[in-house]
């Protein structure tokens, strides 16, 4: 038996565990991206294929789809660990819950948000978004999906013990997603209008730090409630 790892080493291991588990089922990792692609295809069908109209709506469309993809994957974040009991073990372990939760959220962000941000330019071009706005899109998605992961995890932690959590988590979490949507889509629109993007990204960064500082407390409290119930 080796001694208990230090807090940071533990977080590292937890993060690696989450990523390994996810990468063992690559299709599951690709699901949000596939969802993203399919919903992007819905918009020209619903709005008509006129390129300039699609370009005008593209910032909002891309951001809303990223938000929904994030929401759908957030629901599963704690589910399997809750069902096989490893979440309960985690709560009982002497490791600080704040950091453990951070590892979960970080893994979620890397697997959905960062991947979505990386692949978003492709769909942006398909929606005729000018290339000049792409850096703003990627930057705002990178920072914004981090906030979304934290907020979504709060919802996931509160609903993980419920049998019908799927719709509920959307109702709980979507209002808190709205500021991120506003500033994220605003950044891309600003870039389209030739405005500096840095202020938007700064606000998203501030939201990200804020969510990272306070979010894990709420997630930890939510997990404790779900385990107790």
């Amino acid at each position: 038996m080796s001694a208990a790892p230090g807090a940071l080493a533990f977080v590292g291991r937890l993060l690696r565990r989450q990523l390994t588990l996810a990468l063992r089922r690559p299709v599951a990792v690709l699901n949000p991206l596939l969802f993203f692609a399919m919903v992007v295809a819905l918009f020209p069908l619903g709005l008509g294929p006129a390129p300039d109209r699609l370009a005008a709506f593209a910032p909002g469309i891309l951001w809303i789809i990223a938000l929904l993809a994030n929401l759908l994957s957030a629901e599963m974040l704690f589910r399997s660990d809750f069902e096989d009991g490893s979440l309960e073990q985690l709560l009982l372990s002497p490791q600080p819950l704040y950091l453990s939760v951070l590892a979960y959220v970080l893994a979620h962000w890397l697997l959905t948000g960062v991947l979505l941000a990386a692949i978003a330019p492709l769909f942006a071009v398909m929606l005729n978004l000018p290339v000049a706005a792409l850096p703003a899109l990627v930057g705002s998605l990178l920072l914004g999906t981090g906030v979304l992961s934290f907020v979504g995890s709060i919802g996931a932690s509160l609903t993980v013990g419920l049998r019908r959590g799927g719709m509920l988590i959307a109702l709980l979490v979507l209002p808190f997603y709205m500021p991120v949507l506003i500033f994220g889509a605003g950044a891309v629109e600003g870039a389209l209008a030739g405005l500096p993007v840095a202020p938007y990204l700064a606000i998203l960064g501030a939201l990200f730090s804020f969510a990272a500082a306070l979010g894990p407390f709420a997630i930890g409290a939510g997990l404790r409630i779900s385990i107790d119930a």
Partner: peptide, 12 residues
């Protein structure tokens, strides 16, 4: 548990 969950949600 419902009460505590709602308390957390309303604080958020």
């Amino acid at each position: 548990a419902a009460g505590r969950a709602c308390a957390v949600l309303s604080l958020v």
